[in-house]
Design a protein around this nucleic acid. Structure first.
Length: 298
DNA sequence: TTCAATGTTTAGAC
DNA sequence: GGTCTAAACATTGA
């Protein structure tokens, strides 16, 4: 699922747990998802000094390197705290369950054991905590880069929509440059604005009352402003609800993303618009499933 | 069997 | 240089 709010949620949860901790050992099972090839060797003794996010990239900051995670469509990060062996068996299991924290990503139903068949990399910390990188479709990647290389990668991404630098003026400039591009590909383009994915593009367009297939340069000033505001509103709302989970990975732990319940348009194919009761239209746009209300969105 | 899925990159056409 | 499209990556489930 990982779009900006999901990665941001992971980032906020992780930084509370792993800053200052050191990787004792790393193991990878799908080499093509990882670079450089000798990553496990090079990660020995990697101390996490900070956790951050750029676009949809999760970043563990080391002394001289960045460890980058991209979860793509089905990536998932789980931190399992060290198990407490000092308490009795049944109790330990229960406590472990309570302490087991899911840091978002794609929910894989019915696979609660760790590691599981989708586990692509494992990082063991010296304090006993274990970080799992799971990815059903193997689209994601893990990359250890120097800080210089890292900055180069970050530089390719566009403005962060929740930062102050994402001003209305800046947004209007981008729209101007986008010319005849349709809103969907324009908003999905990470080099323009970074972090929006398919769900939030549909949601933002709905909130702004504009159709995803509108040409960017046909927006009125009023629509530009509404869309700008909608992007920030939607992202902030989703972060508040810990992002989007299509399903719950672990039941009743209160830690799964709740934004799914608040979505107004995405994934509601065939249902009625919550505002005007018109059937929601589903179509394909630039190869992506796209939803809009033909009455509310112009 | 066929289609679609939360992301990104690339190739080719215009 | 830009934009658009389809395809590729790999897997599952409806």
């Amino acid at each position: 699922m990982p779009e900006l709010p999901e990665v941001e949620t992971i980032k906020r949860d992780l930084e509370k747990k792993i800053i200052g901790h050191t990787i004792r050992e790393a193991a990878i099972s799908v080499p093509k998802m990882v670079s450089p090839k000798d990553l496990p060797k090079r990660l020995k003794g990697f101390r996490v000094l900070g956790v951050s996010r750029r676009a949809k990239l999760l970043i563990l900051e080391g002394k001289s390197d960045f460890l980058l995670f991209h979860l793509k469509m089905t990536g998932q990060i789980v931190l399992r705290p060290a198990q407490d062996f000092s308490i009795k068996d049944g109790e330990a299991r229960q406590r472990r369950q309570q302490k087991q924290i899911i840091f978002g990503g794609h929910p894989i139903i019915g696979l609660k054991e760790l590691p599981n068949k989708y586990t692509r990399a494992i990082f063991c910390f010296t304090n006993g905590d274990i970080l799992y990188f799971n990815d059903l479709r193997k689209f994601g990647y893990i990359k250890l880069v120097s800080k210089t290389e890292g900055e180069k990668i970050f530089g390719k991404y566009g403005v962060e929509p929740l930062e102050k630098s994402f001003t209305l003026e800046h947004f209007i400039e981008l729209i101007k440059k986008a010319k005849t591009a349709r809103l969907k590909p324009f908003l999905l383009n990470q080099e323009k604005i970074s972090g929006l994915g398919n769900i939030y593009v549909d949601e933002a367009c709905f909130l702004a009352g504009v159709r995803p297939m509108r040409k960017a340069n046909t927006l009125t000033r009023r629509e530009q402003e509404k869309l700008w505001r909608a992007i920030k509103t939607i992202l902030a709302l989703s972060i508040k609800h810990r992002g989007t989970s299509f399903n719950t990975y672990i039941d009743a732990d209160g830690l799964t993303g709740r934004f799914w319940k608040y979505r107004k348009i995405y994934g509601r194919r065939g249902e009625l618009c919550l505002v005007c009761k018109t059937p929601i239209v589903y179509t394909k746009l630039v190869g992506r499933g796209t939803h809009y209300c033909p009455k509310c969105q112009k």
